[in-house]
């Protein structure tokens, strides 16, 4: 898109907002897998809304990245959402993993949405008024996501041996990789010092652990709670710096962006 002058994406502000937007887009994209094939029709409808929210919220965050620099906001949003090279995406690697089975999907949904709610709550105090205002709005919408995630968490935990085992398998895969969510973006210190990001990702990790650990313990999953100082496993590290696995580079990205890339400048 030669005629689209995108803002500087390397600023701490852009990097922080891209991390938030890309988390939403890629997890929403993966969640949309269940539309039409979820384990019940009722759940199909519920989960589709969660997928749509991811896509919709990403759009709203990309608009803040654009910060009024382009006239055609939709084209700018698509240039960000669908027009970047894979290494320019800043989502955590756990977001790009395939849905695997419903237990893994629910474990990830539970982890991601608790994290997102905590991040949004802290962003409500951002010194950037647009960021603060959008965070408050989205936090309201996340309430449904949290209730939905907790609903199935509770039911799977007491849903018999097989369900509990599968949920345990899901968390075994998700929890170590989830630590990648808390890696800082480039020059994050600057964004924290400016008050754009009132709480850095590293401190968000503490808050997330504080809120998630008791629930995991009550569910008999205490052994899976990551240690306070646990390192991000290599295979899930540096997503926030643009390192991605084949799950994104070979699976998600080509399919998600092909049509957009094949027709530069087209309107749809």
């Amino acid at each position: 898109m030669a005629d689209l002058a995108l803002p500087d994406l390397s600023t701490p502000r852009s990097q922080v907002l891209l991390a938030i937007a890309d988390d939403a887009l890629i997890s929403g994209h993966r969640a949309s897998h269940w539309t039409g094939v979820a384990p019940s029709l009722e759940e199909d409808l519920a989960f589709s809304t969660i997928a749509q929210a991811g896509i919709n919220h990403a759009d709203l965050w990309y608009q803040l990245v654009l910060d009024g620099t382009v006239d055609d906001v939709s084209a700018g949003v698509d240039a960000l959402g669908l027009g970047r090279e894979p290494e320019a995406y800043r989502h955590a690697i756990v977001c790009e993993r395939p849905p695997r089975d419903f237990a893994y999907t629910l474990a990830r949904h539970w982890v991601l949405d608790r994290f997102e709610a905590i991040r949004l709550a802290s962003l409500a105090a951002s010194t950037d008024p647009e960021v603060a205002a959008l965070s408050v709005k989205l936090l309201h919408e996340h309430r449904y996501h949290l209730e939905h995630a907790q609903l199935w968490f509770d039911r799977l935990v007491r849903g018999g041996d097989e369900a509990a085992d599968r949920l345990r398998d899901g968390f075994t895969q998700v929890l170590p990789e989830a630590l990648g969510l808390f890696e800082p973006v480039e020059d994050e210190d600057q964004a924290v010092a400016d008050g754009l990001l009132p709480v850095g990702h590293a401190r968000l990790r503490e808050r997330w652990l504080e809120s998630a650990a008791p629930l995991l313990e009550q569910a008999g999953l205490a052994d899976l709670v990551p240690a306070v100082d646990a390192a991000v496993p290599d295979e899930a590290a540096f997503g926030r710096r643009g390192c991605h696995t084949d799950d994104f580079v070979v699976d998600v990205w080509p399919e998600m962006t092909r049509l957009y890339r094949e027709h530069p400048g087209a309107r749809w």
Partner: peptide, 8 residues
């Protein structure tokens, strides 16, 4: 849904 050409 996975291949749509714009976010809208």
């Amino acid at each position: 849904i996975a291949r749509a050409p714009t976010l809208k």
